[in-house]
Amino acid sequence: MLNQIIKPMLLYPLQPNQIKSWKYNSLKWDGFRALIHYENDKVRAFSRHGTEITSRFPELLNIKLPVKSAILDGECIVFDLNQPKDHPPKYWWDDAMTRFNTKTESGVKRIATTLRAHFPLWDILYLNGKPILEKTFKERREVLKSVVKTSETLSVTPLYDNGHELFQKAKELGLEGVCQYSGDAPMILNGRSEHHVVKVKAYQYITCQIESIRLKGNFGWGLSVNGKYVGVLEFPPSHDEIRAFNQISKQLICGESKGWRYLEPLISCKIKFQCFTKDGKLRSPKFEEFCTPNSVQ
């Protein structure tokens, strides 16, 4: 198990009206899953798909734990050190992906000076030569807290008693959502169960205008908000909605260039999305319905 590719347990997705009354709840970090293998001061790290990412994150090489070996389960998030000093530290999904996709030694060395990786952990799967998957989440958390002390690189994800209140707070702050853990559940690798660990995403909604249509290749509608471009809708609506849109949009064409057809006036629609990206785009926008420009966002 140690220093081998393992597939961790995935989070079972729930809707906001399905939030459980479990007493172990955390914020959902907006980065990517990371499994940290530690053995006698040596570290290897893997993504949840089994990609080794050790060389991409030199921050991990200085880890010292008070045990011989362990496998830590958590997330990689990334802070932009170039933010104004009077602003609180903020992490961006975009920056996490930039770090993940930077692979050359020179590129990693350069980018690590401005985009600092941090690994908030919520579980431990292996300790001193033995898997501890059969222990309950509550028991594993106590082990994790005894092994990991907060540092610039590692921390233990805080837990909160009330999942409903935490979800509302995450929603107010524009965060990704919450994770919920059954305190009595063991860990099951390469699986997903609503009785073990779940996630509830705090999607946001906004009224956008469809300003362009991709002419070739994959489906795409260019979106704007109050005249500002906010990205491309690439998850197509239903066939009926596309058909209705095409009938109307034919009368609104005002030009074409570089594989796109432009519309004027614009057609408004309600969009569901995860969050705004660092450059102000919508992350993973999905069509909800056509609407009037003044619909409540």
Rank of each mutant, 00 (worst) to 15 (best):
Q4R: 13
I6K: 00
L10V: 01
Y12D: 12
P13W: 07
I19F: 13
Y24V: 10
S26V: 02
H37C: 12
R48W: 09
I53D: 00
R56E: 11
F57C: 11
P58L: 06
P66G: 15
K68C: 06
S69L: 12
D73F: 02
E75G: 10
D80I: 02
N82E: 14
Q83Y: 04
P84I: 08
H87W: 11
H87E: 15
K90W: 03
D94P: 04
T98A: 14
R99K: 10
F100L: 14
N101G: 03
V108S: 09
V108F: 03
R110F: 04
T113S: 12
L115Q: 11
R116M: 13
R116P: 02
L121P: 14
I124D: 10
L125D: 13
L133M: 07
E134C: 03
E139H: 10
L144F: 06
L144Q: 07
K145C: 10
S146V: 00
V148R: 05
T153V: 15
L154A: 08
L154R: 05
S155Y: 05
L159Y: 05
D161Y: 04
F167S: 08
A170S: 13
K171W: 00
G174E: 05
E176D: 08
Q180S: 14
G183C: 02
P186G: 15
M187Y: 15
I188P: 01
L189D: 05
R192S: 12
E194Y: 00
H196A: 08
H196C: 05
H196E: 07
K201R: 06
Q204T: 06
Q204P: 09
Q209P: 01
Q209H: 04
L215E: 14
K216Y: 07
N218G: 05
S224W: 00
S224A: 13
V225L: 04
V225D: 02
K228P: 01
K228C: 02
Y229A: 02
V230H: 08
G231R: 02
L233S: 13
P236M: 02
P237Q: 09
P237H: 06
D240K: 09
D240M: 03
K250E: 13
I253E: 14
C254D: 05
K258D: 06
L263M: 01
L263Y: 00
K270V: 07
I271S: 12
F273R: 04
Q274M: 00
K281M: 11
L282R: 03
S284E: 07
P285F: 04
F287H: 04
F290C: 01
P293G: 15
P293K: 14
S295L: 10
Q297N: 15
